[in-house]
Amino acid sequence: MTAWKKVPAGAIDAALVALAAFDVWWTLEQNAADTAVLVLAVGVLACGALFLRRRFPLTVFALTVLASLVLDIQAASVVALYTVAERSRNRRLLAACAVASAAASSVPLPPSHFAEIHDTWTLVYFGYLLATAAAPVLLGQLIQARRDLSLRLAEVEEAREHERQLHAQAVLARERAQLAREMHDVVAHQVSLIAVRAGALQVAAPDPDTQEAARTIRSLSVGTLDELRHMVTLLRASTGGATELTPQPTLADLHQLVANSAIRSTLTGELPTDITTTAQRTVYRTVQEALTNVRKHAPGATAAVHLFHHDAEFGVMVTNTRASRPPLPLPSSHQGLIGLAERAELLHGSFSAGPLPDGGYRVVLEIPVGTEGP
């Protein structure tokens, strides 16, 4: 069956037309004396119409029935009847076509020939042809059922494959969630204690060397906590897409981030060049999350990213106008802003986000100078 499907449809149609043409030629040879031009034209038309049987099955069948009325042919009508049965689900229509095909071949034309044929023989011949017409109908229905079954099996296999992928993703998500919990509850807790102890030692140490060592330990602990929280966020992600790996983004990447945000946005202001990589990454993630939320929840809005720094603090403010069209109902974990607040807390800064009176939204990150970590 697989090898049969590789045969071009045009080649199959050509072979069937040739078979029907041979059937017409043989019939005309047997009745050469009674052959008329009209009869020949009807036979040729019925054969040629088989090339269009896939697009107009009922029309082609009607032409073959007309040819069967004037010619004792079988091939063209059988092919046309099979095509109708293979493409139609109307059982009453198929029964009517089978009866019409048998009647066209069993009733002699012209009507004067009725007197020459016994009525009983006509009925017997009609019954024989009706049984013969049932064969292409049943074969067409069988091919149709086989095609439907193949499509159904393909759909079932696709559904099973999708179910296997979902199961694998669920197992992976559980493992990642368990690992994230262990890192958050155990490792992050211990590092937090180290940072707290180092801060207390830095305040209570009697000599400058001890204070400097405690400050270094505390700064490294804060940076480690930031990285741990970043890794926990990645582990909790449910998708298997690309993760945020090294090299980590810096302030130098902000211009490209704003330019590639797919929204109308501007970047103004500047930050000190000597702030740490942890602070630069926090500013970058804040802008990234804010622009992502604009795309998701405020389609058509414009955004403004403003970097600022004073003597005591620095940070970024992202504002956007109200949406110009309704947002799409996209899924959301509602963890983005929580993660940004945690990042700001690690740097002893503050984070705020909320709507504006004009329908827009504003996100503000403020980090004290000198406490931004390593």
Rank of each mutant, 00 (worst) to 15 (best):
V287A: 13
V65F: 00
A21S: 15
L172R: 13
A9I: 15
S112T: 08
A62M: 10
A131D: 01
T371K: 14
L291P: 03
E182Q: 15
V156C: 00
A214G: 04
V171A: 11
R343I: 08
G373V: 02
T266G: 06
V137M: 04
E182V: 11
Q74E: 05
T371H: 15
H255K: 13
T120V: 14
L45G: 05
P111H: 11
T286G: 10
N90A: 09
A95G: 12
Q288H: 10
E158L: 02
T246F: 12
T224A: 12
A11R: 14
E342Q: 04
G360K: 01
W25G: 14
P110Y: 03
T122Y: 01
M1Q: 15
M231G: 03
A195F: 11
S261D: 07
R325D: 04
G48F: 04
S77F: 02
G240E: 12
A104G: 15
L328W: 02
A103Q: 05
T286C: 12
T286W: 07
A312T: 15
M1C: 09
V187W: 01
M231L: 08
F56C: 02
N260L: 04
P208Y: 00
E116I: 13
A135D: 10
V203W: 02
E86T: 11
A9L: 13
H306D: 10
H118W: 14
S112R: 06
A353W: 10
A200G: 06
G140F: 08
T246L: 06
L328A: 15
V191P: 03
Y128C: 10
F22V: 06
G223N: 03
Q141K: 15
F22H: 07
R281S: 09
E157Q: 10
R146S: 14
E345N: 13
V79G: 02
F22K: 08
L179H: 09
L235D: 13
E155K: 00
T268S: 08
W121F: 13
H230D: 05
P108L: 12
R152M: 07
E366G: 07
T321D: 08
H167I: 07
L337P: 07
L220M: 02
A344T: 03
L346C: 04
V42H: 02
A21D: 15
P368G: 09
P331C: 09
L129K: 12
